[in-house]
């Protein structure tokens, strides 16, 4: 009997130590990410970053976004809905975080559409068909060209832009910012510079509400 309790007690002690370790580690890495966001504040929004909503909004959601990421796809209408429901108080800034294989090509195509003012149209087409082109083991981001053929782009120019140095430079900047801000998974949210550490729709909404309240009482 006694020995069974020794086994159970040891197992419990190891589980408790593990849980405590998780708490300590999460706390420490949260601090690190918060500090990174404070130190690299200028890395959150760049002049080239696409903005959705009122550009003078008090609350800015920065989203590090990967067009191949399924969770990004699910969150897209949620975040867009939050901006639309805010009466101009919340805006969304998109940053590229090509973490998946093939995402860099997809980002370049979307950025080529942005050059012609069609970023959001192209993005929505690409997201709608994401299951077709963004399989993780065999991605076919080139398929996006066919998806955005009829949104009114000068396709010759877009194809040239996608391969051009300007978009390549922009993508490098986004990746450098992503690393500086310690974003290692997508979607990565920052609300007025505060990183969303516990991921979830409710948590994101709560963080936005908190920043809205802060901005209302100066």
């Amino acid at each position: 009997m006694n020995r069974k309790w020794i086994v159970l007690g040891t197992a419990l002690a190891v589980v408790l130590a593990f849980v405590a370790g998780v708490a300590v580690f999460t706390n420490r890495s949260n601090q690190e990410v918060k500090q990174a966001a404070q130190i690299n504040n200028e890395a959150l929004v760049r002049p080239h970053s696409p903005i959705f909503g009122n550009s003078a909004a008090k609350v800015t959601i920065v989203e590090f976004f990967d067009p191949s990421c399924e969770t990004c796809r699910v969150f897209y209408p949620i975040v867009k809905g939050m901006v639309n429901a805010s009466f101009g108080q919340v805006r969304l800034v998109m940053r590229n975080a090509p973490l998946h294989h093939g995402s860099d090509t997809a980002v370049k195509i979307l950025e080529a559409a942005r050059v012609q003012g069609k970023y959001w149209e192209a993005l929505e087409r690409a997201l709608a068909a994401q299951p077709q082109w963004a399989s993780h083991d065999r991605p076919q981001p080139e398929m996006i060209w066919a998806l955005i053929g009829d949104i009114g782009l000068d396709m010759t120019k877009a194809r040239a832009d996608a391969e051009g140095p300007a978009i390549d430079q922009l993508l490098r900047q986004d990746i450098a910012d992503m690393q500086a801000l310690k974003v290692d998974r997508t979607p990565g949210f920052f609300v007025n510079g505060t990183p969303l550490r516990e991921f979830g729709e409710a948590q994101l909404k709560a963080l936005v509400q908190q920043e809205l309240k802060k901005s209302a009482t100066p």
Binding site: F18, G21, F25, D184
Partner: peptide
């Protein structure tokens, strides 16, 4: 086992 899970799942 706990160490391996910590390295993989917690420390990423």
């Amino acid at each position: 086992t706990a160490g391996a899970l910590f390295l993989g799942e917690v420390m990423g």
